[in-house]
């Protein structure tokens, strides 16, 4: 019998992905699966190719080799099922927080009245009521990230790609945002691929942590299931014995790669 059960297909499935920049091979032979509703974190030394992988999954970059499947279908062009929260600021500086949050709906041809009221609701969800008419330069870094999060989530993507989204934030704002993200994710279980170089963040958030080797020709070398209870509070969970145990385990592997990356630099 033919398999046509949606639930059986992984949200994201990478097989044998390689990516080169000129002579430099960034990632090589990457195999990776993210199940529907799963929260997967990817950690690895800076420059190992995490952003490159996300760009491939988003369809912004053609891999040199290998295939990307999204819910069982080969990816062609941009990945329409995915929302992408970029590492850098990507808001339009000439649009207000409200217009930025509504941007995707505007592109889809939604009525301005509808898209505005929905954008208002999403800004409220990320704690930005009252800031609708501010331009990005009038917001703090943390607030801009929230607008970007609302901008992506308002489109209700089934897959969420996040590239070190909170790395530029101070520790308090960061933990606040992490908890918010978990809350939003739990509301309607999206598949999340969360890239970070911060192992604690990865463990606190994810169902599964994947460790990438140092570049060149980086690939996943470890895959750890994180069996901590949910719902979690990212601040408190860091203090539990279970957390520390997993952390020691993963760090033993990641540390070598970080050292290797340092040695090369």
């Amino acid at each position: 019998m033919e398999m046509n059960d949606q639930a059986a297909d992984a949200a994201i499935e990478l097989s044998g992905i390689s990516q080169r920049f000129g002579e430099y091979t960034a990632v090589q032979n990457v195999n990776l699966k993210v199940a529907p509703g799963e929260f997967v974190a990817v950690v690895g030394p800076t420059g190992c190719g995490k952003s490159t992988l996300l760009n491939v999954i988003a369809g912004l970059r053609q891999p040199a080799a290998g295939s990307v499947k999204v819910f069982g279908e080969p990816l062609r062009g941009l990945n329409r099922r995915a929302g992408y929260l970029f590492q850098q600021d990507a808001l339009l500086p000439w649009k207000t927080a409200l217009e930025n949050a509504a941007l995707g709906l505007t592109f889809n041809g939604a009525q301005q009245k509808d898209s505005r009221s929905l954008a208002r609701a999403w800004l409220a969800k990320v704690g930005l009521s009252g800031f609708e008419n501010r331009y990005p330069h009038e917001l703090s870094g943390g607030m801009r990230k929230r607008v970007a999060l609302a901008q992506v989530l308002i489109m209700d993507p089934k897959i969420l790609l996040m590239d070190e989204p909170f790395s530029a934030l101070d520790i308090q704002t960061r933990q606040l945002m992490e908890n918010e993200l978990l809350r939003l994710w739990q509301e309607d279980q999206k598949s999340v691929l969360f890239v970070t170089h911060d192992l604690e963040e990865a463990i606190a958030l994810a169902d599964r942590v994947i460790v990438m080797s140092a570049g060149p020709a980086s690939r996943p070398i470890g895959d750890f299931a994180i069996e901590l209870t949910r719902p979690r509070d990212v601040t408190e969970i860091r203090l539990t014995e279970d957390f520390l145990k997993v952390h020691r385990e993963v760090w033993a592997l990641l540390r070598e790669e970080v050292m290797r990356a340092h040695g090369q630099a």
Partner: peptide, 14 residues
């Protein structure tokens, strides 16, 4: 900025 451009494309801009 290429990032702003990529972001707009991901949000569905024609």
């Amino acid at each position: 900025s290429p990032v702003i451009l990529a972001n707009a494309r991901m949000l569905g801009a024609a």
